[in-house]
Computed example of a mutant assay.
Amino acid sequence: MTSLLSIQGLQVDIATPGGTLQAVKNLNLDVQRGETHCIVGESGCGKSITALAMIGLLPEKARITAGSILFEQQNLACLNEAGLSNLRGNRMAMIFQEPMTCLNPTLTIGTQLTEGFLRHGKGNRKAAYERAIMLLEKVGISAADKRFHQYPYSLSGGLRQRVMIAMALMCEPDLIIADEPTTALDVTVQAQILATLSELKSEMGLSLIVITHDLGVVARIADNVTVMYAGEAVETGTVSQVFGNPGHPYTVGLQKSVVGSADRDSQRLSVIPGRVPSLVGGLTGCRFRNRCPHAIPKCAEADIDMSELEADHTYRCLRNVSAGRPEMTGGVL
């Protein structure tokens, strides 16, 4: 089956005064039509940079230095700004992390909703208005006509996030990238937003990429999961595989640090000791080794390839820590 989106060997470097920062290294990721694919990891692991690379909105000093991003077999990494602009908001759309900073406070909600629709030639102003009202209602905003004429400051955080979802849907894209779509929202609103995204995905046949650090979000909506650490994918698989039989020590650590997984005797959450290594300059070996309870000297010697734990379930480690039994993999002695 041909993937809707296929990322192969992606590397994103950022120039800094101290040297080149390897924000994303050798990333492979495939998203099928109708799939919800979650990219999970702690802050600074490369999730958002990966999303921005997909849609051609990298920061000024960031560059794609290797790999390809194929959207329906078209390499986005080779497109100029005009080509990317024709895709953004049209075939691909993004829901950004903080709607208050992404919505223009000087323009009404309606103006911002209809701008992309008109720019991509999807119809006239009447058609744009009708679609905007329909989508505002579909994402759960009542009194849609009133909201259409309001400014962002008049809306709560949850309503602004719903407006961002409606905006992403205006041109009927094939792929939506949602970057931390429930950040700073209370638990009840988070659940509503996630339910809305899932319903719209099923109803409209969308593919979703959801960027998050929240394993609860992943468990609730994901079909497949990519776990990232320090710019690399360290584990990929279906949500049941990654949650039920994690192969990488970092994935295990993430799961143990979630509320509800505390040791029954101590009632204390597990923590991952140490800190993320600097990504500036050349790095070899496992990037997690300085925090890993299963690290051995060989972990520092060379870059580590992904190993297969089971069908469609891979992890980047010399040892198999699934079921708590660290064993050597890939013929390494």
Rank of each mutant, 00 (worst) to 15 (best):
V234K: 00
R275S: 15
L27D: 02
D214M: 07
V189K: 02
D214Y: 09
A219H: 09
V12M: 02
V31G: 00
F71N: 00
L254G: 00
Y151L: 06
L155A: 06
V210K: 01
I141N: 00
E310L: 10
P59N: 11
E130A: 13
R268I: 13
A311F: 09
I64E: 05
D265C: 08
L175H: 03
D305Q: 14
N86P: 00
T36F: 04
R88M: 14
E180L: 05
K298V: 14
M164I: 05
F96L: 09
T183D: 04
P246K: 03
Q161A: 04
C292I: 05
A230T: 03
G110A: 08
T101A: 14
P277K: 10
V218Q: 07
L29C: 09
K25Q: 15
L29Q: 02
E199Q: 15
D30F: 09
L21W: 00
I39T: 03
G158P: 01
K146D: 14
T20V: 15
V139A: 04
L169N: 08
Q97F: 07
A143C: 08
L136R: 03
T182A: 08
R289S: 11
H120P: 01
L155E: 05
L135F: 10
R63I: 09
R264I: 13
I64P: 02
L21A: 12
C78F: 09
V217E: 06
P297D: 15
V276F: 04
Q241M: 03
N80G: 14
P152I: 04
S85H: 13
A300H: 10
K122V: 01
N320I: 02
V239T: 11
P293L: 12
G140A: 10
C171R: 12
C317H: 02
T188P: 07
D145T: 12
N124S: 08
R125L: 13
L206M: 09
I177E: 01
L185R: 08
T183F: 09
L175P: 02
